[in-house]
Design a protein around this nucleic acid. Structure first.
Length: 432
DNA sequence: TCTGGGGTCCTAGGACCC
DNA sequence: TCTGGGGTCCTAGGACCC
């Protein structure tokens, strides 16, 4: 208690210090059950009920269509979505198909269903749950909105996907007050007032700790973590809570008797480097001591773009050749469309296969120029496919274009290299 | 009753060059 | 001729994240 008061005093003193001596305060903001919450804005009648998002391809039109069929005397439009009665919503009960849950409402999570769980499995656990299809356009719209609100208040924001951002509070007015709590509260309120959506925020000396902190009080939580909190707050947590430690690393750590972050921190750095590799070992050591020097990155360029699809039923390369070929062509067209729409070209073209036993195989090929052309992608992806083993039945097929460049930069580079080539040709002529 | 789709980064070996 | 580096690019696989 005395310790907490001392910390608070120290924090409020900081606000009067010149900027150079301000403490680095990094926030991680995580939207609460984002997809499900967006759906609840559209269907407020589902509030408090178990709802899962994922799987099928149904859209709201299906709901409206059923409503129109049931009550043809009335005119139904998307403005009436609020009034769709509960029994019109599809239930998880009896679901058959391959999808997984993308997001579940907190009410649904009580039943043990959550992200990445197979829908058929979820149907057993919570058959009464309402199942809604994913609607990425809608989520992207709200994603842009909440991020615009964040950058209006605190401009140094790093985009970490549709429902997460890091924010550098250090030099934002009020960003030091109560260690960041005041600004976090302001941002939460601004987002809620504009969108009706809630989020959780963690503020800490760096991204690593901020990310962990944002999970402490979900939903609608704010958690402030100081360097001094390491022993009491961070060390008792499971290693898995560190962003970057997944199931494999966790299992390997456990095999050495390391369960908590504190136990990890107790190991010598050299021992970690010997057992987990130079880089990973050094990183594990730093992370367990709460150290993370990564900057908040404002802009980044994409490295690759891909499209993939899991078939309704496994396909065989020979027996289902025609069907597979049509899907393959469509994936190439989609990737090409994505590249063109976003203004990129790439020179590494690859494929991804997942067999019925879940083994994944990739093949890729780097060509001598940049492209975003569907037919060309199809041609080289086709060559990759010929190099892949095709005995087993296929579950998934994907097409990827990597080594990306902005289309205009590629055009410029091509112009330059054309003139260089002339020079090189001249040189070659002399040598031979 | 198995397990989506879209990404990033790292590792490791081989080719090739200096 | 042999040996030994280092650096970069390419390819395949894998861990991890949202």
């Amino acid at each position: 208690m005395a310790c907490a008061i001392a910390k608070r005093t120290a924090a409020s003193e900081v606000t009067s210090l010149p900027p150079t001596t301000r403490l680095r305060r990094i926030a991680h903001l995580d939207m609460d059950a984002f997809y499900a919450s967006v759906e609840l804005l559209r269907y407020p009648q589902l509030k408090g009920l178990p709802v899962v998002i994922g799987g099928g391809r149904r859209r709201e039109d299906d709901l409206l269509g059923r409503l129109r069929a049931a009550h043809p005397e009335q005119e139904w439009s998307s403005a009436h979505l609020h009034h769709i009665p509960l029994d019109f919503f599809p239930r998880l009960d009896g679901y058959t198909g391959r999808g997984v849950i993308t997001t579940a409402t907190y009410a649904a999570r009580q039943f043990g269903v959550g992200s990445a769980l197979g829908l058929m499995k979820a149907a057993k656990l919570c058959p009464q749950a309402i199942l809604l299809p994913v609607d990425f356009d809608q989520y992207r719209h709200y994603s842009r909105r909440f991020k615009a609100i964040v950058t209006d208040i605190a401009p140094l924001m790093e985009d970490r996907g549709v429902d997460e951002v890091y924010i550098d509070f250090t030099d934002v007015p009020g960003g030091q007050r109560e260690g960041g709590r005041v600004l976090a509260r302001l941002i939460q309120k601004a987002i809620f007032d504009d969108t009706g959506l809630t989020c959780s925020v963690g503020v800490a000396p760096n991204k690593l700790l901020a990310k962990m902190a944002s999970e402490f009080n979900k939903p609608r939580g704010i958690s402030i973590v100081w360097e001094e909190d390491l022993e009491d707050t961070i060390w008792p947590l499971a290693c898995r809570k560190i962003n970057g430690i997944g199931p494999k690393l966790e299992a390997k750590l456990q095999s050495h008797g390391i369960e908590t972050i504190g136990q990890l921190a107790a190991r010598e750095q050299q021992w970690l480097m010997d057992n987990f590799g130079e880089r990973s070992g050094a990183w594990l050591h730093a992370a367990s001591h709460g150290q993370d020097a990564r900057a908040v990155v404002l802009e980044s360029e994409p490295v690759s773009m891909s499209r993939e699809t899991t078939f309704d039923a496994d396909l065989h390369a020979v027996r289902n050749r025609a069907e597979l070929g049509a899907i393959f062509t469509k994936l190439c067209e989609q990737v090409a469309g994505d590249l063109q729409r976003k203004g990129y070209v790439g020179k590494t073209i690859g494929i991804k296969l997942r067999f019925d036993d879940f083994q994944i195989v990739t093949r890729d090929q780097t060509i001598d120029h940049f492209t975003a052309d569907a037919q060309e992608i199809r041609q080289f992806a086709g060559q990759c496919l010929k190099r892949a083993p095709l005995q087993k039945r296929l579950r998934l097929l994907g097409v990827r274009v990597g080594a990306l460049l902005k289309a205009e930069d590629a055009a410029e580079r091509a112009a330059n290299s054309a003139s260089h080539d002339q020079g090189a040709d001249g040189l070659t002529g002399q040598l031979f």
